[in-house]
Design a protein around this nucleic acid. Sequence first.
DNA 1: CGGTCGATTGAGGGCGCTCAAGCCTCGTGG
DNA 2: CCACGAGGCTTGAGCGCCCTCAATCGACCG
Lengths: 251, 251
Amino acid sequence: MSPMNQQSLNKTLMNVNGPKQACSNCCQRERCLPIGLEGPDLDRLDSLVTRRKHMQRGDHVFRAGTPFQSLFAIRTGFFKTYELQEDGQEHITGFHMAGEIIGMDAISTVHNACNAVALEYSEICEIPFPQLEVLCREIPALQHQFHKLMSRVIIQGHGIMMLLGGMSAEERLAAFFLNLSQLYAIRGYSATDFHLRMTRDEIGHYLGMKLETVSRTLAKFQRQRLITVNGRHIELQDLVRLRQVMNREEM
Amino acid sequence: MSPMNQQSLNKTLMNVNGPKQACSNCCQRERCLPIGLEGPDLDRLDSLVTRRKHMQRGDHVFRAGTPFQSLFAIRTGFFKTYELQEDGQEHITGFHMAGEIIGMDAISTVHNACNAVALEYSEICEIPFPQLEVLCREIPALQHQFHKLMSRVIIQGHGIMMLLGGMSAEERLAAFFLNLSQLYAIRGYSATDFHLRMTRDEIGHYLGMKLETVSRTLAKFQRQRLITVNGRHIELQDLVRLRQVMNREEM
DNA sequence: CGGTCGATTGAGGGCGCTCAAGCCTCGTGG
DNA sequence: CCACGAGGCTTGAGCGCCCTCAATCGACCG
């Protein structure tokens, strides 16, 4: 590594606008807003993102009720978004990984509709929304990509609705793991061997079941040699049969 | 009514581009895309909507798998959107009334992700999506309103997820009626007295329960004098207690 | 008038919840 | 260093909500 690069790397740690953290250098640029952007357009999007933050487990990106001003792109790490019901218990609306944009639900509400919290060390990029809209008016490719990302969130929601509305606990959990598997694979991690970032309770709140049921179902899967469970370390042993479980196929 | 108006009304029935059906005259303009638009901007949006269709119960607006080209604004009537699972049974992703835009989920998928079908006589406006994006680049107010509408769909999804993930059959049905009540009230209809457009089976598929459970729960609500049921005619007799049921409050 | 479709109601059973006990891993402080 | 508590996870026993299966009824229609 040249002295110059070393210098800019050090600078990155101090100044969050260092070149190492530009969109153009970001390993998420093929999953995030910049898809299809090049040269000056990419630079303009870059200049929009003035704040990149490091977050520890438990740090909140935003909380329900606070004013909505920005979207947040996940650079690295893992987040959950959740809403608190009247009776105090939380419902998790989603888990989010690198490349995803969170906060879109607040566009229509002035105030944030949900809470977003880091489940491990993470880095996020703040995207001031009014300025993003301005840029979307000037860069058609950015506009379209933004619309596609919003649309994807809607479709994701439909998927979870189908899961919650029509699947048994086993089917939900199988679908959950297969989905996680795919998300990791897309990002270049192992599709069959990963570490859960969330507790059993959080999985339960996401999938609409109690933590005991999550635990019991995991044990059953392990007995059937579908997966290996070791605390939060999960190994998917038989993707084919796991898919059969998800689709209610007899074995 | 003047002869002139009579003439244009007749023309409307023949030519779906008649002035009577322009956005500027539409009774949904305060709920739909045109919010905040005036004069020439409104006219430009109007000229984008070249096809307004009349639909009978059972007519499909679009089907899953067909190419995505347009969004559809509901002028009058009632629709459901649904997806077919692998095992053939349908899951209803939403019921939709006048002023809503359907088809946004397909923006990210090239092909339509779900089916949309009219549940009664309805009228819709087709909005070619690429041209809407062009117009959004030129009219900031339209752009923002469009983003707000997409965001609202995301939030709606979260609401249903909370319902499906954490509520009992009674709570779901109470929430369903209270939501319907509000939607009707906003549109100037009675908040306590309405006609269901969907079957018990469809309510069940939407709320994640079987039609027998829907029927039984309706009967129970009726016994408790919370509502009056007469086929598909529903009267909400006690909104306060219905809200208590939804929120799990003891009575 | 039979046929279809939607709705209601009953009987019985199973999945997942509730309540409870116990284990393990941490981090903290005596 | 170990004691201790807290939080996360597992496992068991029992029960209740909702599903399944089935019969019946009314409305509508060819």
